[in-house]
Amino acid sequence: MNYIGLGSKHKSRGVAANFIVKIVINNQELSVEAGSTVLEAARAHGIDIPHLCYHPALTPYGACRVCLVEVEKNGRKQITTSCTYPVGEGLVVRTNTEEVRAARKFTIGLLLSRAPEAETIKKLADEYGVEPGLERGEDADGCIRCGLCIRVCRELMGHEAIGFINRGAERIPETPFLEDNPDCVACGACAYLCPTGYIKVIDDTTRKISSWHKEEGLAECRECGRRFAPARLLHKVKENLRDLEISDILDLCPECRREKEIKTLNVVEDR
């Protein structure tokens, strides 16, 4: 069967799994999984739609407005975000019309004025021939309010270390009271997903995440003594994996862990 798109969290909207519907994307008839979004369906078929606030493991958010496409249903056309729009039998999607590209160009321009230095945005801007819509100067803080950091923290890490504060153009992800939040274990998942590099993780003898006013001690590797992971994060992981009896390898830095694994394998082979 010609469909993929599994692995997404936001799948079943009350629709039986593996139920297939036919849609048309750019004149191509495709079988897609019911309950998936247009963006997921397109990705599953290798059709490229630019996106910034979407991540397959997180709830769709629809905020960056870059994944805009034209959808046509019952003869009615509209420009909408593909990351949130559910597929349905007979849906017709156009991902690359002049109107769609003009709309994306507009939103990319607005994002570029927020994050003029970010490589991801610059690349999109080049592709769409955009100049920043607003000259912000100092105000261009590099954050595009995509909310990936907040969602990954809440939905995957199970923490609520950060959230948006303020509204309108002043909206920004922050910790409560703009101070270190003990709920944050400095895992760095937020920085890993951040499309612009707004969140920076600096590891030295401690881990610093200045956006979240965070400084967290790093644990030493049992073998080589190198500091490699936030101590509290490690503690949390050990707690979670208590039943697996692998806690002794968790104290090792990735390199020592690999070495140990190789040794173990050798032992097994020697036998």
């Binding site: 960056c64 509204r167 309108g168 153009a169």
Partner: peptide
């Protein structure tokens, strides 16, 4: 409306700033 914009999406929060300029 600019003051009341929640700021979630750039067309509203940034676009209204552009128009105001």
């Amino acid at each position: 409306t600019r003051e009341e914009s929640c700021g979630k999406c750039p067309p509203c929060s940034e676009g209204s700033l552009l128009m105001l300029k």
